[in-house]
Design a protein around this nucleic acid. Structure first.
Lengths: 109, 109
DNA sequence: ATTCGTTATATTTGTGAAAGCATAACGAAT
DNA sequence: ATTCGTTATGCTTTCACAAATATAACGAAT
């Protein structure tokens, strides 16, 4: 018997961060490219772009900065805010899992 | 900035209980009928039936007992186990909401 | 025996989200 | 100027899942 959860953070403008977006952002950080990150998690570029776009719109300051053109075609890198958001989310998510496991044990089913 | 969550409990066989299923089970308890409960939450009977069927299969003992035929056509009622499962889930869910709100406050974003 | 509202199940139809396809702009390096 | 891989964006197509439709069994009450 396992308890599972999905959590996410919203502002008025839409979803700011979620588990899937964290994964995407981390891959952007590793690869330096939204395109490569999307491929790495078997996601279409368009879908990936929409996700980070929505997150950016929901945020007070952008999570990423993009570069169009150049020798390597361009790229995407995380802002410090983006990185801190990932860390905050993962902290909350991990603690939530622990908490839920404890709560489940308290119940007898 | 709001933190949101969806939680559910699974066994090896599938999903045992979730927010939507709790709502459905509570409506079954109120109406005495799976059909009426489905209508009340704007759900097709077939979808509702599959939900309780999966929950029953995931459980070690059934959440509901059904009656086919009779003067009122039949009906569905919750077992004591079904009722206790609802209570347990709602307890965990409410405490999870509180916990996540606290965790969000600890982060500065 | 007929009626009625329900459970139970299969098959067909709709729909909305994701994927796929296409195209343009960009800019450093050659 | 050309090349190349990327960001950015619109349009079309596919597909999984929900809804709709259809049908049968059931059994207490009349």
């Amino acid at each position: 018997m396992k308890i599972k959860s999905k959590i996410w953070i919203e502002s008025e403008e839409g979803v700011l961060i979620s588990e899937g977006r964290v994964q995407l952002l981390k891959l952007i950080d590793e690869t330096g490219s939204l395109n490569k990150a999307a491929k790495a998690m078997n996601l279409s570029y368009q879908k990936a772009w929409k996700l980070v776009d929505e997150s950016n719109k929901a945020a007070s300051s952008p999570l990423i900065t993009t570069q169009i053109g150049g020798s390597k075609g361009g790229g995407t890198v995380l802002t410090p805010y983006g990185k801190s958001l990932i860390a905050s989310f993962e902290t909350i998510n991990r603690s939530c899992w622990e908490y839920l496991d404890e709560q489940l044990k308290k119940q007898n089913l």
